[in-house]
Design a protein around this nucleic acid. Structure first.
Lengths: 308, 308
DNA sequence: GGGCATTAATTGGCCAAGCTTATCAATCAG
DNA sequence: CTGATTGATAAGCTTGGCCAATTAATGCCC
């Protein structure tokens, strides 16, 4: 069976008139009769009862018409869908996110998707550290990643989308909670709640900054994920230096205070340079159109984020 | 776009190998390459990324494959469905029923449909008198009718499926409820609950029988439909002569008693002799195979049911 | 690094499927 | 009974799809 036959049949079924159907199809009537007969012989079933004056669907014909209509409509929709997928206006984007960006940047990205790419679905993988995201971007199990430079190795495109100063998160009852701004040196005796992984770029920035301020932070507790970390701060277990974006997660019992001459950490959008899906490309361009920073990170070169 | 292209594409998508796909399709490889390229050019989209060593689906190709698979599967199912409809093993049968047959014969018919024609749906139109059913069989809004002969006019096929004696329905507290059998003459002083329409064949049989027994029944109440009629009997409003099939509807407060030399009414299956749908024909044959009576009614001849 | 094997694309020619024009047959209206 | 309408049939032509042979590109192996 061919779609040509199905289209012809459907048109005859709609008009119940071979002549007019042929006209509508821009073919001659004998060709139409022939095609329909051929279809009937393939199905070994009469689809129409016809006299020279009257054409009517049989039960089998009526059934086929229903289905044919659905198939033809599905086909049209499919063609549209393929075009949309090819243009990156439809599909699934698997987006990786470093911990704090889940609260500060994901909402913005989601809003972009909803308004600009309504046919696009997102699959969110949050709390992924930079090396994990790179690995998965390369192997193709992620399409885009919101991560903290630097990245190592080749094949990952990168573009800075935010430069965040670190801010101090302290329990609301803490002595520093009343100060408008805090100097790093004031923290040399504080108990720190820190990110629990050596791979954490933020953690490295914190250690370096404290070292430059003349002390080594006293790490009392560790947490995986910004929300857990802030939870421990809220519980009064210590203070923490976190990217300013963490302010997007206001937690009862935690106050944020600026840090004098605060070190900064970068946030970048990363993507696989080979085999980038069209949706990923179009979402990437939209995101960068809104969030791109002047400080552009060269794609394959590993660069550390600015540290103050 | 043609199904040929879709089938070819799907096979390539499944194998990711033009050579093997061509083999599976029993065509030469160049023809396959050509067909796929043609499809791609129609869609203005690459469906595969190909080198001489590697063939892989693009995002658009993956999307198309999903849809193509569904379309092709739907098509196969449709072909099967058309065959089934043509063979009368699938479809909708609109079945008309005279009042009492709804309880006595519909269950049997429904069981036949369920076991022998699982793909067939029924649309039940009950409580239709013979003239209505004939009218609707002719105009095509019914496929089959369980009705009481005679029918008038041509074009209606008819076959007797049951010959029922009339039985007496009396309220449980009625003086006749204790007798094993009742003579018609005993009813000459009784209040009758009767079918409320002149068209009712049962009603006519009742009137004729009473007349032959030497009295005219005293009609006190009228009802449309056997269930309503029996309800009135249960309420003690009178007695009724009903086809024996009504016993299939045991109603609290009503007892049925045999009538001496009971008049009988026929029940027949009727169908339109022109433009009978395949489902209707196959169900008709099944029904008649089980229920056909020796007393066959000639199709176009109006005959009265046996009256005892 | 060079030769070999593999595989998809290209080319050219052939054949069949499908379309058109012309004609026929059947049905219905007046 | 005659003419108009309409679907089926017949015959010729054209396009498109298929095959065989060849080419080009890629990856593997020694």
């Amino acid at each position: 069976m061919e779609l040509r036959q199905l289209r012809y049949f459907a048109t005859v079924a709609e008009t119940c008139h071979f002549g007019r159907a042929a006209e509508r199809l821009h073919i001659a009537q004998p060709a139409l009769s022939q095609a329909v007969r051929q279809l009937e012989s393939e199905l070994r079933t009469a689809l129409f009862t016809r006299t020279t004056r009257q054409v009517a669907l049989t039960a089998a014909g009526a059934f086929l018409y229903e289905e044919a209509r659905r198939i033809l409509d599905t086909l049209d929709a499919t063609v549209q869908g393929v075009r949309r997928v090819a243009e990156g206006r439809r599909g699934l984007v698997r987006l990786g996110l470093t911990g704090s960006a889940t609260f500060s940047h994901l909402p913005r990205i989601a809003r972009i998707v909803k308004h600009e790419l309504p046919g696009v679905a997102m699959e969110i993988h949050s709390d992924l550290l930079t090396p994990e995201q790179c690995e998965r971007l390369r192997e193709g199990s992620l399409d885009l990643g919101v991560l903290r430079p630097p990245v190592t190795g080749e094949g990952i495109g990168l573009c800075t989308i935010d430069v965040e100063p670190l801010v101090l998160a302290v329990p609301v009852e803490h002595r520093l909670a009343d100060q408008p701004e805090v100097a790093l040196a004031d923290l040399h005796n504080e108990a720190f709640v820190a990110y629990g992984t050596r791979d954490s770029v933020v953690n490295q920035a914190v250690l370096r900054s404290c070292h430059e301020a003349g002390f080594a932070p006293r790490r009392e507790h560790e947490a995986v994920g910004t929300s857990v970390l802030l939870g421990l701060v809220a519980a009064g277990l210590g203070v923490a230096l976190v990217p300013a974006g963490a302010r997007s997660l206001p937690l009862h019992g935690v106050v944020f205070r600026g840090v004098t001459n605060a070190p900064t950490v970068e946030l970048a959008l990363g993507w696989s340079q080979d085999a980038e899906a069209p949706v990923a490309a179009s979402l990437r361009e939209l995101i960068l159109g809104v969030l791109r920073q002047d400080t552009t990170v060269a794609p394959t070169v590993a660069r550390n984020g600015a540290l103050g």
